[in-house]
Design a protein around this nucleic acid. Structure first.
Ligand code: FES
Ligand code: FES
Lengths: 162, 162
DNA sequence: TATATCCTGGATATTTAATATCCTGGATAT
DNA sequence: ATATCCAGGATATTAAATATCCAGGATATA
């Protein structure tokens, strides 16, 4: 069970975009350059974020991506849903409806207890992700990220926005 | 992000094995027959459950599998760990250590805040799974499973246990 | 003791999903 | 007019999940 690596890329990109001056953007190429990742593939993930209204895209020279909502209105769950899809990890194949002691499909209106237990776990997971906003993540940068890196990032931003 | 389908198979097999008389077993072939799934592949999953001490295996004629512990001592998390592995869905690739504004690897002793948030969600998920035992699942069978299916299953068991 | 049954583990094939690149077309600032 | 950038489709590559097969060892039974 592995989540798309694009989720890590996306959240880091969103965090960087959040530090931009209002109405400024970063192109996919710049975002990929900053994170040392392939631009062509990152583009696919950014498009998914645009589709889910997490990012806005501006075409043309001086174009690029910017946040589509306030950082308080973007949760980790939003990103996971956009990149990794909304389907739960546990997929009930209705195994109970197979084999020699199964009944007709009309007799299985209520969900299987096992599937229900996994749905509960999935809800707990989603609840935790829903409770964490981009704003929360950014708030802990000053205490968690090495000041030297913060400085280098700011300098890089200044350079490319120049 | 998809969990192995073997998890669903496994929990249903464990549930069936829990209804066996003490010291009786079911072979992989019988378990596969009951659930209408491929025996050769199910065998792989059963072996994983034996490795994690959830099942015991008895070789030879009249052999097969039986629960290795009381139903109260087997949680959904145990099964997921055995079948799907213990690695979390979100795998931090340390993207923060790449790109033009990264520092040396010694400067990243504390985990990334983003990875920490996903670790929290994973813990919530595992906590939910840990709280659900095989005993819990079996207890809700009388109210959740169609009585006709319960009867057919019992009859099938009686037949194969001869 | 011969035999049939059953688990174990390795080798291998098949199918599906994730990862990655490329290219055309359209938008837009300069 | 041109250079830059996003959108989206086509396609290739790689990794993972799914599935089968077989040789070897254990054991109950006749
Ligand atoms: S039938 Fe799918 S989990 Fe029980
Ligand atoms: S570096 Fe992996 S989540 Fe931040």
């Amino acid at each position: 069970m592995k989540m798309s690596g694009g989720v890590e890329w996306s959240v880091h990109c969103l965090s960087l975009l959040a530090s931009l001056p209002p109405d400024r953007t970063l192109s996919a190429k710049r975002l990929a350059e900053f994170h040392g990742i392939p631009a062509a593939y990152l583009t696919k993930h950014l498009q998914a974020l645009v589709r889910d209204n997490i990012l806005e895209s501006i075409p043309g020279p001086r174009g690029g991506f910017r946040l589509s909502r306030a950082t308080e209105q973007i949760t980790l769950l939003d990103v996971v849903d956009a990149i990794d899809g909304k389907r739960p990890a546990f997929r009930c194949s209705e195994i109970r409806q197979r084999g020699p002691s199964a009944l007709g499909s009309k007799c299985y209106r209520r969900p299987c207890g096992i599937a229900a237990a996994f749905a509960n776990a999935d809800a707990a997971w989603r609840g935790s992700l829903m409770n964490c906003t981009l704003s929360d993540l950014i708030a802990e940068i000053p205490e968690k990220v090495d000041p030297r890196q913060q400085k280098k990032s700011a300098a890089w931003l200044k350079k490319v926005l120049g």
